[in-house]
Amino acid sequence: MSIQHFRVALIPFFAAFCLPVFAHPETLVKVKDAEDQLGARVGYIELDLNSGKILESFRPEERFPMMSTFKVLLCGAVLSRVDAGQEQLGRRIHYSQNDLVEYSPVTEKHLTDGMTVRELCSAAITMSDNTAANLLLTTIGGPKELTAFLHNMGDHVTRLDRWEPELNEAIPNDERDTTMPAAMATTLRKLLTGELLTLASRQQLIDWMEADKVAGPLLRSALPAGWFIADKSGAGERGSRGIIAALGPDGKPSRIVVIYTTGSQATMDERNRQIAEIGASLIKHW
């Protein structure tokens, strides 16, 4: 067993022997301040990774656009098919120029040779490549099948209805392509620590998230040296922004954090800054 596999296998073990965790309302004060600064709703939840206990939450059962955070769930569904012998990570998928959609920095470079399922998941999570996500959605049967996968996990809230990039439209009061912070946090925890996926697939999923290259201005910008984070960000229309993450000190994750916002007129930089400040408060009061 590799060191990384050992780390993920012992996530519940280490967490069980940690000192009790206590909620700190100071972080919620910052979440509410972010709402004021952005002029928009902000949803927040913080779960203990081992027990699933909610440590703090704000608007945990209000719907927010998922945006690209759905790509972690998508690759979880792909990995479940791999575990069941219905898919192979090494299978190569070929596609054409007509398949390319807006923001496809990886797939646009491989029109000639195609990409493997493993490479597509890596591109979808680490670079948020939209064509990679659409190609992977095709392998599982489309958005409705991802929703069905989530329902089978016990998540009857999260739903995907459309493809990239239309799913980022974020129309107010439109339930399409949305989740709730509580539902997303619980589902992410199941994917990373539950028995739904094999140990190898859980490790692969967290490795992809740990290698995320496009979430630097968010929670990662607030992390002290030595902290662990595996995350996936999302951005959408109407001032929408979000991030889902597993993080913790001492090089291992111990909490799940989900943050979503929508309806702001603020710039992307300002949305990023507010999420980073929430992260800084979380870490300060850990």
Rank of each mutant, 00 (worst) to 15 (best):
L160G: 03
G76C: 02
L192P: 14
Q97I: 11
N98Y: 00
E87G: 14
R41K: 15
Q203N: 01
S201M: 11
T107Q: 00
V157L: 06
R202P: 06
T262G: 05
T187V: 13
K30M: 13
D99I: 10
T262D: 04
E175A: 12
M209R: 01
K213P: 09
A266K: 01
I140Y: 13
L146M: 02
E145D: 01
V101T: 06
Q203L: 07
H110V: 04
A280V: 10
W208F: 15
M66Y: 00
Q86Y: 15
E108C: 06
V157R: 08
R238D: 03
L47P: 01
I93P: 02
G52T: 09
Y95F: 06
G279P: 11
I125E: 01
D269S: 05
G194I: 12
G263C: 14
G226F: 03
E87T: 07
K144A: 09
P217A: 09
L100D: 04
R118L: 02
I171V: 02
Q37D: 13
M268F: 02
G251T: 11
E61K: 00
E62K: 00
A132Q: 06
V257Q: 03
P165W: 03
W227H: 03
R63L: 11
N98E: 01
L120T: 14
I243P: 02
P143S: 06
L192V: 02
G85W: 15
G114V: 10
R255H: 03
T116A: 00
L49I: 13
W163A: 12
G52E: 01
R220N: 03
Q274R: 13
C121L: 05
R118Q: 12
R238S: 08
F149P: 14
T179N: 08
T126N: 02
N152I: 09
I278L: 11
V42N: 13
E62F: 02
I206S: 12
T69M: 06
I125N: 00
I206Q: 13
N272I: 02
K284R: 08
T179Y: 00
T179D: 03
I259Y: 12
D177K: 07
S201T: 09
D155P: 05
A132H: 02
T27V: 01
W286M: 05
I278P: 12
N130M: 15
A266E: 11
Y95T: 02
A225S: 13
R241P: 04
A132E: 08
T179E: 02
G251S: 10
G52Y: 03
L73Q: 05
D36I: 14
F58P: 00
L219N: 09
L197Y: 06
M153S: 09
M66W: 01
S240Y: 03
D269K: 10
L28H: 15
I54T: 06
K71N: 02
E87H: 04
T261S: 10
T178A: 08
C75I: 13
L160V: 06
G76Q: 12
I206F: 12
L47W: 03
G141M: 00
L89N: 04
Y260H: 02
K213M: 12
Q97W: 14
R159W: 01
T186D: 11
V258Y: 13
R59E: 04
M268N: 04
L89C: 07
S240Q: 02
R176H: 11
Q86T: 15
I140V: 07
T27Y: 01
G142T: 07
A266F: 14
K53D: 09
V214R: 14
T179Q: 02
L120P: 08
G141H: 11
D36F: 02
C75R: 02
S68I: 01
C75V: 15
H110A: 09
T147F: 07
V101G: 04
E175G: 12
K109S: 15
A148W: 13
G154C: 03
D212A: 12
T267Y: 07
D250L: 07
L219Q: 13
G52P: 08
K213T: 09
E169K: 03
A222C: 10
R241A: 06
V117N: 00
E169G: 10
L73I: 13
A211N: 15
G90S: 06
G154I: 00
A185T: 06
L28I: 04
Q37I: 11
T107S: 11
Q97R: 15
R255Q: 05
A235H: 03
M209L: 05
L199N: 08
R176Q: 10
D99P: 13
R41H: 08
E164F: 00
I171Q: 06
V101L: 06
L191C: 14
P105D: 09
P165I: 01
S201K: 12
T187S: 14
T116G: 01
D161E: 05
I206E: 13
K213Y: 14
M209C: 08
G251A: 08
E56L: 14
I244Y: 10
G226C: 07
R202S: 07
R202E: 10
G141Q: 01
K30T: 15
V157C: 08
N173K: 09
Q204P: 01
I125T: 03
L55H: 05
L120V: 06
N173V: 07
L47R: 02
Q274S: 09
R241Y: 09
M153F: 04
S233L: 07
L136D: 14
V78W: 07
T27H: 04
T112Y: 06
A34P: 01
E166I: 14
R92L: 04
S254V: 07
P181I: 01
T158L: 05
L191R: 13
L150S: 12
T147D: 04
T112V: 13
A148N: 12
D212Q: 15
N173A: 10
A77R: 00
D269M: 05
F58V: 00
P60Q: 07
I54P: 09
A40D: 04
D212I: 14
L47A: 08
D129G: 00
G194F: 11
R271Q: 02
G263K: 14
K232N: 15
W208C: 04
K109H: 10
Y260D: 02
E195V: 00
A200N: 14
T267N: 09
L197C: 04
M115W: 15
H24E: 13
P25G: 10
M115P: 11
M209I: 08
G251N: 02
R238V: 08
S80R: 10
T262C: 04
A245F: 09
L247Q: 13
E145N: 04
A34G: 07
D99A: 07
G39K: 10
T138H: 09
L89F: 13
G142W: 08
L28A: 13
Q86C: 03
N134P: 04
H285D: 01
G239I: 02
M66T: 01
Y103E: 15
K32Q: 03
Y260K: 03
D231N: 02
L146Q: 12
G85I: 15
A222H: 09
A222T: 06
R202H: 10
E62M: 00
R91M: 04
Q274M: 14
D250T: 04
P65H: 04
D83S: 11
K32E: 12
L137C: 15
M153G: 13
K190W: 14
D269F: 08
I244V: 14
T139A: 02
G226Y: 09
E87A: 05
S128N: 14
K284L: 08
K71F: 00
S240W: 03
L136K: 14
L192T: 07
G216I: 05
D161M: 12
V117A: 06
E26K: 15
L111N: 07
A84T: 10
V258G: 03
N98D: 00
G52S: 06
T261L: 07
A77F: 00
S264F: 10
V78M: 11
A215T: 05
L28V: 15
V78Y: 13
A40W: 11
L89S: 09
Y260Q: 03
R238A: 04
I275W: 14
S96F: 00
S233V: 09
L55R: 11
A34Y: 10
W208E: 14
D48R: 09
L192Y: 10
P224H: 07
K232A: 14
T126C: 03
T107H: 04
E237A: 12
K144H: 05
D83P: 09
L150A: 11
S51D: 01
L136G: 12
L135N: 07
L73V: 15
D83V: 04
S221K: 01
T178I: 03
R159H: 05
L120M: 01
S80C: 08
R176A: 12
P60W: 05
Q204N: 02
R238M: 05
L136A: 12
T27I: 13
T179V: 05
V257S: 05
M180P: 07
I206N: 11
W227I: 03
R41W: 07
T179C: 12
N134V: 08
P165V: 05
S221G: 10
G263L: 15
L205Q: 06
E277V: 11
A200L: 02
Y95E: 04
K232D: 14
E108Y: 00
F228R: 02
L188D: 14
G85A: 13
L28T: 13
D99C: 03
Q204R: 03
G263I: 15
I278A: 11
A148I: 02
L28Q: 09
K32M: 12
A222D: 11
H24T: 08
N130E: 05
T69F: 02
F70H: 02
P172G: 11
V117C: 00
H156I: 08
V29I: 03
I243H: 04
K252V: 11
